[in-house]
Design a protein around this nucleic acid. Structure first.
Length: 751
RNA sequence: GGUCGUUUAGCUCAGUUGGUAGAGCGCACCGUUUACAUCGGUGAUGUCGGGGGUUCGAGUCCCUCAACGACCACCA
């Protein structure tokens, strides 16, 4: 054996494990399975420390495999809709192109190829981290059978009356060109200006003077004596494009204390105002387009971006004496796109929604009655609170990367459909079908199609037909909106295990055996995005929760407690660390001393410290082998006759018994940090520093004890540091007769 | 505004069910004994955020205050 442990053996060891078939569990109905579905990483994303924390899952998996349970860890890759398209568009931008240069089929194909190139890298990286996943059951979210199931589920939801199209106010990012769900908006405190402007007989305060052209009312509080006499009247407002009239309404939403107690109502561009508009039956007047520019209703400001328009409007109003004062130090929250950080424009647009109440109720119940348990338990409360306040889910995204919503519109029946497409000359055409139907053939539109926007009242079919069932026209176009990524991944445990949504009875053996899975482990930041949706889909489709326990793990931060991000430049690359110090050192550093769901501090110092520990394991083993060799022991028996042992030997065996117990308990209760810490202490200090030092150069009778302690320790350590322990085990095997072929599948020590 | 979390040695953090504090890194001194210098030995450093309470006894339970952080929320 070499003087230091060489991490070069890792690849061979991993391949050996994989070849042995031990990653692939056999269905044994006499035994209870143990299963974890990997939170599918973005197939396109190189690994970061967040992925390396899946070490926790590997620890659970290796432990349960050693307990002899049929153990499944199912890996996967996510196409990650908006995330991937965003990355790809950035790549296009570098080449001086944009998504508008391509028809959607071409763009889709390009992104597909891009992801395919990277998907294998992602898999290789997970193998490098030693993850004992069943690669024979790997799934990619855009596999044909998975997509087929997702579409089937959509149809089922539709038939159950849980899908609807509606024109509501949605969070729209004009930069990404798509609407988002409420979860995808980050609210950031920012200092802006609050403008006090003349508004008919009032003065009112607003942060958004530029949306004035879309005002269809002005509101005051019904209890506000100051404005009582105006309620119900129509007032004339001096506008920059000439005077206009709006109604004065009374609504509880108005805070009398704020500003002047008068609010202009712009239903098309503010969520509160939209709601007010519904209550008071106000006209919705859009003045901002999906391109983020003012439209023709803004008069001379048409074509300006929102920011430019605001500047101009303010300047003009000041000039005309319509601006009373400006509070330039007004702090409030602004919604920004979680992806590109641009300001989210609330916009009214037709979108697809899921009615969520019916799905949420049983999912709340499951948490309350313990069908789904949470660890740490405090997350149960935030899960329930969020689910109690959940709103209908906007599942449509105006991007190409992802499965299209299976709805078909007949162009003849819906002539008002707005189309964006590239004609034969690759020129972008944007118009309503009725206007261009004689100019372009159906084929030309279909082939060059980028996107369509159907009016909210448009008729559609949820099945694909070769002709319109009403007018028999063959000019059908599929909805160009794609699904929110989480609509797919929300069904992930079902689809990866082979659930058949058309006929659940015909689901696969895997599904029948492994569902519900045992543990779902993930970072708490996707508790709502993903975990909650999986619970809802799981119960809706199967009547059962998808997993019995939700284990929320911690976030990796740097030595200063800062979240790692590329922009901060404080990322520690896990693969670089494995290269420098070995995978085991990294794994140990990730779990050593961490408390459940508190931040994990990973510094290179800590990884180096555990590299030293790994080396200690190696050298202690080397010493034991050397003793055996020196003493020329033959026929080593592992059974220890405790009667003949001296105090030192008895002592170490007692301590071994304790560490077996505590490790087992800690793993059963998700106390990985404590387990790792205790093992470290035991192995290095109790075993190496004290026991080995005491028994050095002593007689032959200690060999069985040495071996017992070593082998038992290796087993306990294996889930944490699989490579070095397996490497040592294989070395031992060549000298000592050992019952088990590889440590990975050896039996967990009995406590 | 609501909810939750954190506050322990110079730094980063552990401390299961309450019994007078631990680890890693760092630091000081010593050690070239043939498993390992990616090592061993010895040692220093803490009124466990402040205050109050329960208890024979509290870092650990309760109350309160403070600082920091996270999440949720439609205030123009």
């Amino acid at each position: 054996m070499d003087k230091t442990y060489s991490t070069a053996v890792e690849t061979d060891i991993y391949n050996g494990w994989e070849k042995s078939g031990a990653f692939t569990p056999k269905i044994d109905k006499t035994k209870k399975p143990y299963s974890i579905i990997l939170p599918l990483p973005n197939a396109n994303d190189p690994m970061h420390m967040g992925h390396a924390v899946f070490t926790i899952e590997d620890i659970l998996i290796r432990y349960h495999r050693m307990l002899g349970e049929p153990t499944l860890w199912l890996p996967g890759g996510d196409h990650a809709g908006i995330e991937t398209q965003f990355v790809y568009e950035k790549k296009l931008a570098k080449e001086g192109k944009s998504r508008f240069d391509f028809d959607r089929n071409t763009l889709y194909k390009m992104i597909w190829d891009f992801v395919e190139e990277n998907r294998e890298i992602n898999k290789a990286q997970m193998k490098k981290l030693g993850f004992s996943m069943d690669w024979t059951r790997y799934h990619y979210s855009l596999e044909e059978p998975i997509v087929k199931n997702v579409l089937t589920v959509f149809k089922k939801l539709y038939k159950d009356g849980l899908v609807y199209r509606d024109e509501k106010i949605v969070n729209y990012c004009t930069h990404c060109g798509t609407a988002f769900s409420n979860l995808e908006v980050d609210y950031v405190d920012e200092v802006t200006s609050l403008y006090y402007m003349k508004y008919g007989p009032f003065i009112l305060a607003t942060t958004r003077p530029e949306t004035k052209f879309g005002d269809t009312a002005v509101a005051v509080n019904p209890k506000d004596k100051r404005y009582e006499i105006y309620v119900g009247q129509e007032i004339t407002v001096e506008g920059l494009n000439g005077p206009f009239k709006v109604k004065v309404i009374a609504d509880e939403m108005v805070d009398m204390e704020f500003g002047t107690g008068v609010v202009k109502i712009t239903p098309a561009h503010d969520p509160d105002d939209f709601e007010a508009g519904l209550r008071h039956h106000l006209e919705v007047k859009k003045v901002i387009g999906f391109d983020g520019r003012m439209n023709e209703l803004a008069g001379k400001y048409a074509g300006l971006t929102v920011a430019k328009a605001r500047e101009q409007v303010v300047a003009d109003m000041q000039e005309k004496g319509m601006m009373v004062k400006t509070d330039t130090n007004y702090q409030h929250r602004i919604g920004r796109c979680y992806r590109c950080k641009h300001i989210i424009e609330p916009m009214v647009a037709p979108q697809w929604f899921i009615k969520i109440d019916k799905l949420a109720k049983p999912a709340i119940e499951a948490a309350k009655n313990g069908e789904v348990k949470f660890f740490p338990t405090r997350f149960k409360k935030s899960y329930i609170t969020w689910m109690d306040n959940i709103k209908d889910w906007n599942i449509s995204r105006q991007i190409v990367w992802g499965p299209r919503i299976p709805a078909w519109y007949c162009l003849e029946c819906n002539p008002k459909i707005k189309l964006n497409f590239l004609d034969k000359g690759k020129n972008l055409v944007t118009d309503v079908y009725a206007h261009i139907k004689d100019k372009y053939t159906y084929e030309e539109i279909k082939d060059g199609l980028q996107s369509l926007t159907a009016p909210v009242e448009a008729k559609f079919e949820i099945e694909e037909n070769d002709k319109c069932p009403i007018c028999k026209s063959k000019k059908l176009l599929q909805e160009t909106d794609t699904f929110d990524t989480w609509f797919l991944s929300g069904q992930w445990p079902l689809n990866t295990l082979g659930f058949n949504p058309e006929d659940p009875e015909k689901s696969s053996e895997d599904f029948k055996y492994f569902y519900p899975t045992t543990v779902l482990d993930t970072l708490w930041d996707i508790l709502f995005f993903w975990v909650a949706r999986m619970v809802m889909f799981g119960i809706y489709l199967t009547g059962e929760v998808p997993f019995k326990t939700v284990h929320l793990h911690a976030r990796v931060v740097d030595a200063k407690g800062q979240k790692m991000s590329k922009s901060k430049g404080n990322v520690v690359d896990p693969l670089l660390m494995t290269k420098k110090y070995g995978t085991d050192a990294l794994r140990m550093a990730l779990v050593y001393g961490i408390a459940p769901a508190s931040d994990i501090v990973v510094s290179e110092d800590k990884i180096r410290a555990h590299r030293n520990f790994v080396n200690k394991i190696w050298n202690a083993s080397r010493f034991v082998l050397m003793i055996i060799d020196r003493l020329q022991v033959k026929d080593i028996k592992l059974d220890v006759d405790t009667k003949i042992l001296n105090t030192d030997n008895k002592d170490i065996l007692n301590k071994l018994e304790i560490i077996v117990k505590s490790t087992t308990t800690d793993l059963n209760t998700y106390h990985f940090g404590r387990a790792a810490e205790n093992l470290y202490q035991f192995f290095w200090h109790e075993f190496c520093d004290i026991y080995i030092e005491k028994v050095k150069d002593r007689n032959i009778e200690m060999v069985p004890v040495l071996l017992t302690v070593l082998i038992t320790s290796l087993k306990l350590l294996h889930p944490f540091v699989p490579f070095v322990t397996e490497a040592v085990y294989q070395q031992l095997k060549s000298t000592v007769k050992l019952p088990e072929d590889q440590l990975m599948t050896a039996t967990w020590p009995k406590s």
